[in-house]
C-alpha cells in the first residue's frame, strides 16, 4: 500500500471533507445507487484516502461511476461527505493534461433523439476539465 501524503492532503483540502470522522459503519456504501458499478465503493474511497492509498483510486473506473446523488452525504451519520471525497479524487485524475475521461468525438455514438442537453453538460462537467 502506498502512503501518498501529498495527494492525501491535497484531496482532503479540495473536498473539504473530514475523513477522520468516519466510524466505518458503511452506510454510504449501503445507500449508494451505483455500488454494483464500482470497483472501489464509497466507504473504501474514504478509508483509502485517509490512509493515503490514492493511486489505485486514481486509476479506477469507479471515479466515473459516482452519480453525485449526494445520498451518502445526507445519510452519513458522521458528516463525512463521501461524495465530495470521490469528486476530489476524480478531479485530481482529470485535471492532468490529456486525462479527460470523454471527448466530444465520443458523443455522436451515444446520443439519441431524446438525449437532453442536461445529460451532455453534466457528463462533460464531471468527466472533463
Amino acid at each position: 500500500m502506498h502512503n501518498n501524503k501529498y495527494l492525501r492532503d491535497e484531496i482532503i483540502r479540495i473536498s473539504g471533507a473530514d475523513v477522520s470522522k468516519c466510524m466505518r459503519c458503511g452506510k454510504c456504501s449501503a445507500t449508494c445507487p451505483a455500488y454494483d458499478e464500482m470497483e472501489y465503493h464509497p466507504h473504501q474511497f474514504v478509508n483509502m484516502v485517509e490512509c493515503g492509498d490514492i493511486e489505485p483510486l486514481l486509476n479506477s473506473e469507479s471515479l466515473y461511476k459516482c452519480l453525485s446523488c449526494f445520498a451518502c452525504i445526507d445519510r452519513c451519520p458522521r458528516g463525512v461527505q463521501p461524495a465530495k471525497v470521490v469528486e476530489a479524487v476524480r478531479l485530481t485524475a482529470i485535471r492532468k493534461q490529456g486525462a479527460n475521461h470523454i471527448t466530444a468525438d465520443d458523443i455522436p455514438a451515444v446520443v439519441d433523439a431524446d438525449t437532453p442537453q442536461q445529460l451532455l453538460v453534466s457528463a462533460f462537467r464531471k468527466y472533463t476539465k
Partner: peptide, 9 residues
C-alpha cells in the same frame, strides 16, 4: 445494506 466484511451491497 452493506456487508463490509464481504465488501458487498
Amino acid at each position: 445494506a452493506s456487508d463490509l466484511i464481504a465488501n458487498k451491497q
